[in-house]
Design a protein around this nucleic acid. Sequence first.
RNA 1: GGCCCUAUCGUCUAUCGGUUAGGACACAAGCUUUUCAAGCUUGGAAGCAGGGUUCGACUCCCUGUAGGGUCACCA
Length: 405
Amino acid sequence: MKSKNENIVVRMAPSPTGYLHIGSVRTTLFNFLFARHNGGKYILRIEDTDKERNKKEYEDDILNGLKWLGLEHDEFYRQSERTDVYKGYLKKMIDDGLAYVSKEEPKEEGQRDEVIRFKNPNKKIQFDDLVRGSVEFDTTELGDFVIAKSVEEPLYHLAVVVDDHESKVTHVIRGEEHISNTPRQILIQEAIGAERPIYAHLPVIVDESRKKLSKRKHGAAVWLSTYKDEGYLPEAIINYMALLGWNPGTEQEIFTLQELIGVFDFSHVQKSSAFFDVKKLQWVNKEHIKLLPKEGQRKILLKEIENEPYMAGEPDLDVEKISWKKVSKEETLKHLAEAKKIIEENGNLMEYAEREGKGNVLWPVRYALTGAEASPDPFTMLEILGKEKSLKRLERAIMVLNAKI
RNA sequence: GGCCCUAUCGUCUAUCGGUUAGGACACAAGCUUUUCAAGCUUGGAAGCAGGGUUCGACUCCCUGUAGGGUCACCA
């Protein structure tokens, strides 16, 4: 049962001053899910008003990352392409006495001696947040804040309000760090006669020290690209991020994007911050691998083990680990010899293993092939390694074992 | 420090006044070795503290405590 509201418009507004952050991914995802669930529109807006800090490289990373995740937008624009629009609003605000050009004493190098300040009406602002309920602020302490360096150079608060207004954004879904920006923006909205959107401030994602996830120290990586490079599936990242700060209200944990769209709603969004747990991400990723077709799984497996020592050459064998459980070396030797013979003759190893006890046979064979306690199963390894190499390794295990008896 | 927000197992969370406080990840033990970056079974593990309200509070209110966010001519 979907509640359709096609008038819903949301936007994600990243600024290209850094690579795509995992927190931005979560915010984008919630915007995307909310829009798709309601059949609304999702706009991607690049907030690049700060010419000094923006980089094309960052914008590309953000765009590529979101595309890789499958979070496609319905509309796209950059604030840097809209200076004329902001200029119009700025001029009108000044004409209407809602803002004014203010003489300043530059405090830092590069600062100008004239900026545009908003004439703060100094009032109490109350707004309803989809996540937090009613929130109140007294804007008196904000003073006449700066909204533009000049009519040609708008600053964040002005640009955001103008764009949300012109794009008819109905819901502003963003990180909690923006909650204290909200009263300023509401003030500007009221000044230019814009309708107030519905706000939803998402709790921040924190690291092991419970601080906003930033930079990589020793815990989780913060850039999406890191996870992509490490081989995580986009579906898994989507799935895990959805579970950070939201739950379906059921015990289902593994979702496809389509399933998430179907069940996502704000009534189950969490108020408190959530810790980014890589271990759980790994589990979610594993579950999504299992959902993949066989060929896909094989590809991932091969990539995963490509750097294992047993892929490079014959592995070191620990005699004590060749035998399964309490099976004697003599018996293991017999099994290995028989396995070798069967493989040579392209016989049915499984049949033999079932007769002699699977573990008794299969463990030593697998260990002989990989020298690892954890690796793909012996049959897969046989296939990957090929008959010739496999036989050599079995022979070597037999030698090692023989020497020890 | 001011303002704002938050508070259930180690972690993510369920509970919308009455439950042996449930699940998942992680962890431990056992089983298993063609679901193999595994699988199965079992286990330990939680309501921040103090006041109220109520027949009855994890759940509602207050205070405290702790943690977080934010205080730019960045976004």
